[in-house]
């Protein structure tokens, strides 16, 4: 694939597909009188944008033997969950139940092969619990942020984290996983741009948590992303809360975005530095 083709598949294709789906599905939803149609459309748009980009970069085989080939299925399921939760929001226990189920599904899809008889890398129960807790904490954090912040205040730093993950994964031994992270970030970018002044769309949270989580876990377990860098990247969205501190809420949006960007760049920068320092150079 030429550099131009790579850019097209990694950034343009998911961005355009997500944008078109967002506009089309949102219009259709509103026309049909579906409540919270924009939330459902956003979940569908980010899911479709990711799956289209994934197929363009690394056409998944079926059945999906390789763990990377399982990620579009997880993204699709997460998008369906996001749509259902948007259209028919249930009591809070159903949200937790859904989070637990999707987290368990992501973990079993990504880590299942390590439980094969021949595997020498079987994760301990403690590791599984820790991965699950991290995923649930990320989900809770993003949902809480999406409830409270406007599109730009959350979306722009979210893109910084998304593209930061992409660079870290490329550095850590997988160009494909890095590209797939950029695909997801590009799909999210379409949603952020189309909803710049609106509240963040909650329906996309399951897609982002499941897909970014699967890509990070894939890189950490099967490529060479250092654990310290993975922790820094996962914790980066916690920095978004800076925009809720003190007088920040009264400041202009661009100022809040700027401050949040600085706060976000700290963990992202640390993660990139750790990934670069752990990676052997081509000249070595």
């Amino acid at each position: 694939m030429s550099p131009a083709g790579m850019m097209l598949a990694t950034l343009v294709l998911p961005f355009v597909s997500a944008g078109l789906v967002m506009i089309g599905a949102g219009w259709l939803g509103r026309r049909l009188g579906i409540e919270r149609a924009d939330h459902a459309a956003a979940a569908l748009a980010v899911g479709v944008g990711y799956v289209v980009g994934h197929a363009a970069i690394a056409s998944p085989t079926f059945p999906p033997l390789d763990v990377t080939d399982r990620i579009p299925w997880l993204a699709g399921l997460a998008a369906i969950l996001g749509i259902l939760e948007s259209i028919w929001p249930g009591p809070s226990w159903t949200l937790w139940e859904n989070r637990l189920l999707l987290t368990a599904l992501v973990l079993s899809a990504l880590l299942g092969p390590l439980f094969a008889e021949s595997s020498e890398n079987r994760p301990s129960t403690v590791c599984l619990v820790v991965y699950g807790l991290i995923a649930l904490a990320s989900w809770t954090n993003l949902s809480g942020l999406a409830d409270r912040l406007s599109g730009a205040r959350l979306g722009v730093p979210l893109l910084t984290v998304g593209f930061g993950i992409a660079i870290a994964l490329v550095v850590s031994g997988s160009l494909a996983l890095g590209q797939l992270s950029a695909v997801l970030a590009a799909a999210v970018a379409a949603m952020v741009l189309l909803k710049l002044g609106s509240p963040m769309l909650l329906g996309t949270v399951p897609v982002m948590v499941a897909t970014f989580g699967a890509l990070l876990l894939n890189s950490f377990i099967y490529a060479a992303l250092p654990a310290s860098a993975a922790v820094a990247l996962v914790s980066a969205p916690a920095a978004f809360w800076v925009s809720r501190l003190g007088r920040m809420e009264r400041l202009a949006t661009w100022k809040v975005v700027l401050v949040t960007e600085f706060a976000t760049l700290i963990p992202v920068g640390i993660a990139l530095a750790l990934a670069f320092s752990a990676s052997p150079g081509y000249a070595e």
């Binding site: 997988s174 890189s219 099967y222 490529a223 990676s279 070595e284």
Partner: peptide, 22 residues
């Protein structure tokens, strides 16, 4: 003969040596 390339080849882009060790 190159550590960086070996890391790449062993990873998910090619052999995925952790998932498919043999």
């Amino acid at each position: 003969g190159n550590a960086k390339r070996d890391q790449h080849i062993k990873g998910p882009d090619f052999f995925n040596a952790t998932q498919f060790p043999t």
